[in-house]
């Protein structure tokens, strides 16, 4: 359970800001890519299997100039974002309502226990059949798979509100609805936001996974598969994946910053302040 409460990369941007680790971190990248370069040159593997690290890095740097990649990235991000928004808009209110009601919570948590372990990508084939390849299908799959994550965090965020806080609100004569708005929502919000952060990572995975499988749905996934099948453009597969990683890092960092600005009272922010 604790796993779900942590944003996976909450420490990332924190670590990137200090100067000494940055230098060491650069050294880490250097060591890794040097090893790849040497392996590529001297292991006897063809460059179609293991391209030179220098080529991979060069191609990664050239990505912004590749129109097809930029468009594909746009399609992927758009589908992820819209799917995530739909899921958030649905899951947060439902989660808050379920979290405040005991009976509904018990029934729903049983359903969530069932739904959460089901791999969302298993639904790609049926959804493809029903909706056909295209943006709607991706958006649906993203919304579906992230819905459960956000719902889970919304319900448990509301349930986990310090009882003392609610008691205090009652002592001061705050009504039930007002107490929800004034006490429960603000204290659950950082936790719900953590759910959105985790869901964002999942959305990216699901979108690209769908694209990899469903030709004709565009996006990074399809871009990677097209380059995979063009023997002379194999190094672009690595570059494309690295590019997705960099975008992933950027998204995570952005969400961490948003979280810090929007929820300065969250526990992780308080810990940081100490």
């Amino acid at each position: 359970m604790t796993a779900v409460m942590r944003a996976p990369d909450a420490t990332l941007s924190r670590r990137l800001i200090q100067p000494r680790p940055v230098l060491l971190g650069v050294a880490g990248f250097a060591v890794f890519f040097l090893a790849i370069e040497l392996l590529s040159r001297f292991s006897g593997l063809s460059e179609e299997i293991l391209p030179r690290a220098s080529t991979m890095i060069l191609r990664t740097l050239e990505l912004p100039a590749q129109e097809s990649y930029v468009i594909a990235m746009g399609e992927t991000l758009w589908a992820s974002l819209v799917g995530l928004m739909i899921a958030t808009l649905l899951a947060v209110p439902i989660g808050v309502i379920l979290g405040t009601s005991g009976a509904a919570y018990r029934a729903m948590s049983a359903l969530i226990e069932f739904m959460r372990p089901v791999p969302p990508v298993a639904l790609i084939p049926p959804v493809l059949l029903i909706m056909g390849a295209g943006a709607e299908m991706k958006i649906f799959l993203v919304a579906y798979s992230t819905f459960w994550i956000i719902l889970f965090n919304a319900i448990y965020g509301i349930r986990g509100v310090e009882p003392g806080l609610k008691d205090m609100a009652r002592v001061f004569g705050t009504g039930r609805t007002k107490s929800l708005v004034v006490v429960s929502l603000p204290s659950a919000a950082p936790f719900i936001f953590t759910g959105v952060q985790i869901a964002a990572t999942a959305a990216f995975i699901v979108t690209i996974g769908t694209e990899v499988l469903a030709g004709g749905s565009g996006g990074i996934g399809q871009w990677l598969m097209v380059n995979l099948n063009a023997v002379t453009r194999r190094e672009w597969v690595f570059a494309g994946a690295f590019g997705a990683g960099l975008v992933g890092v950027a998204i995570t960092g952005l969400l961490v910053i948003i979280g810090r600005i929007a929820f300065p009272w969250s526990v992780s922010n308080r810990e940081r302040a100490e």
């Binding site: 990369d9 699901v206 996934g221 990677l224 992933g248």
Partner: peptide, 11 residues
């Protein structure tokens, strides 16, 4: 880790 697993597959 930030490279989505689904993008790691083609790689």
């Amino acid at each position: 880790r930030a490279i989505p697993s689904s993008a790691k597959i083609p790689m």
